[in-house]
Simulated scan of single mutants.
Amino acid sequence: MNKYFGSAYQFGTLGGILSVIAFGILAWMEPDPTNLNLIFGYVITPISIFLALKFFKDYSNNGFISFAEGMSVGFVTYCLIAIISGLGIWIILLSFPELFEEIKSSKLEVLGSSKDTIISQVGEDSYQSTLKNVQSMVPFDIGLNDAIWKIIPGLFFTIIISIILRKNPN
């Protein structure tokens, strides 16, 4: 099993740790680091997946990788990124409750300033539901949201990278 997932463990862990570090740095620079951290995730996730698949292909599988192997290694990689990043962000927000309150107030401010636009696009009920959800938000919600937004693009990038790197023995 280590043959298949050794590189996934390494690059998934590295990607998750880099994502948590990026959140910490962005929190120091911005009042609401969540949006910029999502963008960072769109960069680090495909890089981590590519490196995990490339290292698996070149160093563990004699230069070959099937689509199924690519999907398996990629799945483990982006899930590790998501788990480590989500847990790390959750722990940071539990450790620094004032940061969480800043993020929450920033999201409420954006909702308030965009109220008319949001209501015209999705209706009053959707706006009120979103407002209620943001008001009842807890630190775990932010960590979970970050993890989900690592998994969804991770699947997409894994499919593409697995197809590009695929090379089966003849």
Rank of each mutant, 00 (worst) to 15 (best):
D58H: 06
N170K: 14
P139G: 08
A22M: 13
S66C: 03
M29H: 09
F67Y: 14
G6Y: 08
I148Q: 09
I49D: 03
V73P: 02
E124I: 12
G41R: 06
D58L: 13
Q135H: 12
F55E: 10
D32K: 04
S72Y: 06
A82Q: 10
L111S: 08
Y78E: 09
E69D: 14
L94N: 15
T13M: 12
P46H: 06
V43D: 05
F64N: 06
T45H: 03
S19Y: 07
S129Y: 07
L131E: 07
L94C: 06
P153F: 06
I91N: 07
F50V: 04
F23I: 12
V76I: 15
G16W: 10
A68M: 11
S114R: 14
W90N: 14
G41D: 07
F64L: 05
K132R: 11
S106K: 11
W28L: 14
K104R: 15
L165R: 03
K57F: 05
M71H: 01
Y59A: 01
Q121R: 09
L87A: 05
N168C: 00
N62H: 10
I142Q: 08
T117R: 13
L93V: 06
E30G: 00
V73Q: 05
F140D: 01
Y127H: 02
P46Y: 04
W90C: 01
V110C: 00
F140V: 14
D141E: 03
S162G: 13
S129V: 02
W28D: 12
G6I: 13
V138S: 08
F50K: 03
I49T: 03
D58P: 02
P153I: 10
A82D: 09
I160K: 04
Q10H: 10
I17V: 15
P139M: 07
I17C: 03
D58M: 08
F75D: 00
D141A: 08
L99C: 05
S113Q: 14
V43G: 03
F100P: 04
F55W: 10
I81D: 10
G16R: 11
F156H: 00
I119M: 06
S19R: 02
K132V: 01
N170Q: 14
